[in-house]
Design a protein around this nucleic acid. Structure first.
Lengths: 244, 244
DNA sequence: CTGGTTCGCGTACAGCGTACGCATCAGCGT
DNA sequence: ACGCTGATGCGTACGCTGTACGCGAACCAG
């Protein structure tokens, strides 16, 4: 009790001594990035603000700036964080085609799991140099080099660009669906009349949208098939480039 | 003079009669969209604000809302506006491969001319239903159907996704370069040391970045070649799907 | 002339990213 | 045991954003 009167505690009682819960990890770059990703996944890119993120970590908004220079830098870190989830098979894989397909599917799965990724890539590209993105590129390069492609970078560009294009388009669509609050099937059903009317004046589109009717039963499977199907085309093109 | 005293004019003199310059087009949805596109092209997506846009049109910010429901809707309109610039050859074109390549190149050129387009596509996809996007889709469908593809939509997805992926990546890169204020070559030169250091631990990337040295002489030609080269791979894959 | 509709504007609100400076605290050389 | 130094968290504040709301002026049909 006598200690409570020391000049270090101006007014407060001993009970103010609740100085700091011990094993609270405080605040660290890693914790911030992890929480940012969680928040982006849960509420989307436009719901992430430094204030809300701070609140989630029991911290003020500006405290984050001790560990992260700017919000843009935080987004870079978030991108690299989820880049670790993309799985590229080892270069000594016996079947290069299956390996490439697996890498593409893994990329797509990651992009659909974190739809905000597409938004960020659209604005900043993947020239990020983060360690996980680097190993992703490295493993892709290793895979296509080992497969024997004379120009591995051309092959990589073909598959990767296709995969990025398809995935961002899908992710953007899913974001739109999510904003509507409906299930994908319901959203399609509600959108269909407008789409058909808009397509009425176009011979070749009218048919395409009657196909969309089928999407109201199992849209997920339909998108999976779409991605896999066109990926085969790209892989066919690649196969022709292999020497033997 | 007597009329000036009528109750309709509380205080002002006749000179206040400068009511409205006649041929000032006032404010219209078309004019707003046109100016928004000009502004996006000139200063990038994050520089576009309703206030600045209004100021450019000699109007208040909120006046725009008489013609456009929300900023998002304005962006949709802007996207459809530039979609008109994409040229897809007629379906009766004798050489489907050249026609498809031309469409792809035109898409890319448009995306690079309006780099903000990629940002918007990443967030909203191209499920926009705007008239110009509809005719774009229609003409693509016509082209690939006329070429004789058994599954035109698969073929379209392959080329279009590749083109979107490559173009958005490039556009994002160009945006980053533009923000630096340097020329593309200078920017590469300045970035190179960091990139090489980051790639040092990765066998297959070290080589790739020495190639990048060459980009400091003519980066534009190198990107053109990159796009065209990998596009050929995709087109090869397509060719295999043609019946005969 | 009159009543309704359209248009542009001013004001206001809630939220944003972040610059700045203060208070606290850990670890240190003396 | 002491004061110093550097790192950390926080409160406040600035300038900016999108846009809801209500007003006055201008037009157009009856």
């Amino acid at each position: 009790m006598a200690a409570a009167k020391s000049k270090q505690n101006p007014i407060p009682s001993v009970w103010a001594r609740t100085r700091r819960e011990p094993d609270q990890p405080a605040l660290s770059r890693a914790a911030i990035v992890r929480e940012a990703v969680a928040m982006l996944d849960a509420e989307g890119i436009e719901a992430l603000s430094m204030r809300k993120l701070g609140a989630r970590l029991n911290a003020g908004a500006t405290s984050l700036y001790r560990h992260v220079a700017t919000k843009d830098e935080l987004m870079e870190l978030a991108v690299d964080e989820v880049a670790a989830e993309i799985h590229v098979p080892d270069a000594d894989s016996p079947d290069w085609r299956a390996a490439a397909a697996e890498a593409a599917h893994s990329f797509r799965a990651t992009a659909l799991r974190h739809p905000w990724l597409s938004s960020v890539l659209g604005q900043a590209g993947l020239a990020y140099l983060g360690p996980n993105l680097m190993t992703f590129s490295e493993r892709l390069a290793a895979l296509f080099t080992a497969a024997g492609f004379p120009e591995p970078s051309r092959a990589i560009d073909a598959v990767l660009s296709y995969t990025i294009g398809m995935s961002t388009t899908e992710a953007a669509w899913l974001t739109t669906v999510a904003r509507s609050g409906e299930s994908e099937a319901d959203f399609i059903a509600r959108l269909l009349p407008a789409a058909q009317e808009a397509a009425a004046a176009h011979d070749h589109l009218a048919g395409a949208y009657t196909d969309a009717q089928a999407a109201t039963t199992d849209p997920v499977a339909l998108r999976d098939d779409k991605f896999a199907g066109s990926l085969e085309i790209v892989l066919d093109g690649l196969a022709m480039r292999l020497p033997h």
